[in-house]
Amino acid sequence: MGSVNLLLVDDEVPFVETMSKRLEKRNFKVAPSFSGAEALGLLEKNESIDVVILDVKMPGMDGISTLREIKRMRPLVEVIMLTGHGTIDSGIEGMKLGAFDYLTKPCDMDKLVSKIQEAKNAKTQREDKITLARISEIELRRGD
């Protein structure tokens, strides 16, 4: 499996820094970001992002609004929400808005890694399906 490009979004700087290092150590490419707005900017510039790990509770633009924007900008990018147990409801709401899954904070690294991989797989499958659909569409047109 090729490397996964991650965008990690959380307002807690040490958390982002350390988790980035740990994820990079597990062969993920991580783009750190400390707010929703910053994350959207990065996402706009960097089209290779596969999965966004997004904290729900952030000052300014919160996780749910950021998710909504991400899905509008890049519908294929998968988002994993990070939530405190008390905000599970917002995690669920996030899933309704198209998030891949949610994890409670502090989260277990192994669980996170497996969720990232699941998300990447899902994204790849969807991209493949789209590609196939496009090819068949082109073929159909040619046939015409």
């Binding site: 807690e12 040490p14 008390g86 502090p106």
Partner: peptide, 23 residues
Amino acid sequence: AGIAHEINNPLAIMLEEGGWIED
């Protein structure tokens, strides 16, 4: 809820740092 939230974030950092040391 307020206290739990406030504690939850440093706790997440602590655990991440611990995990980093383990790594």
